[in-house]
Amino acid sequence: MSAILEVRGLEASYGDRTVLRGLDFEVAEGGVTALLGANGAGKTTTLRAICGTVRRRGEIRFAGKRIERMPTESIVRLGIAQVPEGRGTFATLTTEENLHLGAMTRPNGRDISLDIERCYSIFPRLKERRSQQAGTLSGGEQQMLAIARALMLRPKLMLLDEPSFGLAPMITKHIFEILAEVKRESGVSMLIVEQNASLALRFADQAYLIETGSIVMSGEAKIIREDEGVRASYLGY
């Protein structure tokens, strides 16, 4: 399987503070890669670095193309959709407007409305809330909206930042079921960042463990999941 995303020696910093110290990892075409690690390990920063919303160095290849010098808007146009941490919805705009924004880089046309209908069939709750301001949606609904908005791009790669963030276990489970379904249907590749390691390891094919900005372990998700030592020392469950 070839890699859709290849990252080599990725470094990133906020001002003087270095957060990533040379990460190497890959996302396979059509696969799911999980980045695991504690709070502050640099997971979110890694996603930001890929999208160019934080200053970064190193090599990032998407579908063979170097993207580490591109501005965010151009990276999005290549088909990388990020579902930001804390969902990042447009709070004062309606649910439907949020979805339209997800397709902003695509030419205006009828297939956008068709895709919105498709999102509504995946997330019927969003259809009920279509003309409601996104900020008034519940946490779970906002997470659904963030995922649906990313799907509106018809992405080749989805970057998911803590999809379980602040959600009840039942809702988290539902979200992950939907993500699995989306992956089956569209074959989109995913890079997922999670604190909930057990959940992420069941969903992912490959996993990388990050600790203070460096990768300390990598391998197939199911092997890492079953490794008692890893579980005890890094994953804490």
């Binding site: 919303t53 808007e73 447009f90």
Partner: peptide
């Protein structure tokens, strides 16, 4: 409303 998210959906 949300400049960072706007960038992430490709708005200039």
């Amino acid at each position: 409303v949300n400049p960072e998210s706007a960038r992430l959906v490709g708005v200039r």
